[in-house]
Amino acid sequence: MSDLSLTNPAVAGKTAPPAGARGFRLPTQWLGVAPFFIFALMFLILPTGYLIVGAFQNDAGEYTLENIVALSQPSILAAYWISIKVSLASALIGAFAGLAIAIAIVRGGLPNWVRATTLTFSGVASNFAGVPLAFAFLATLGRLGLVTVILNTVFGVNLYAHGFNILSFWGLTLTYIYFQIPLMVVIITPAIDGIKREWGEAAATLGATQSQYWRMVVIPVLWPSFLGTVILLFANAFGAIATAYALTGSSLNIVPILLYAQIRGDVLHNPHLGYALAFGMIFITGLANIFYIWFRTRSERWLT
């Protein structure tokens, strides 16, 4: 309705004095945001730009696509491929499991403390990544980990004899979903809260079955937030290195670990190939995030 409060950003925007009307004050206006833009330029945009430009140059400083083409050598391609696989698998599993948990705590009719506890714990677990998380999973599913030992001694199932290895694709994926699921819960819970109880009741009085209601309303409404979050989870896993490095050392050849080794010791014997490797990472996460922003604006349009 006619909400004319000044804190409404759209209205506040319109009532602000137009910058042009006081042209002589423009420099002081910009002074307020100058530190931020200088900071962002010097320590975010220029360093990244430096690498991107470097990816398209050779040692002599001439522009070339050689480095990008060189990314297609089998070892690098394999690294990208396993990175994408782990990120995608952990994002999808994390997203579906997180969605199920979020629906359970919001709509499942569980006591209030379940919701509060789950959200608090998710806040913690989504930030519990990196080296300590790797330690926790080594202690759980490593060769001497508690679950491995119990499965072996109590149930007679020897995980490692069945080909499981914590230092593998599945081991890494299982570890990553420890922070992916809670991140999904934290992001998607407000979206599920946005599904009003009355929508379901309105659909019911109009004769819709539960499954028709889900197909025609709930899923279309949640879809953009869900897909957007999957993409965010993907980028989140794709750039992560600490967990993987602490878990597997350099035995699992994912892109961030390859880049880490390149930065430390130029293992590719070509600095510009290193830049191209970094460019490839930005390209993939950037592409994913463009989708994310696009989907977010679409879902927010509905949920306001």
Binding site: K196, E198, E201, A204, T205, L206
Partner: peptide
């Protein structure tokens, strides 16, 4: 509810 053939209007509109 979906077998009753009643129409309902809610306070908060509840449009999809």
């Amino acid at each position: 509810p979906n077998q009753r053939n009643v129409g309902m209007v809610f306070q908060a509109y509840a449009l999809f």
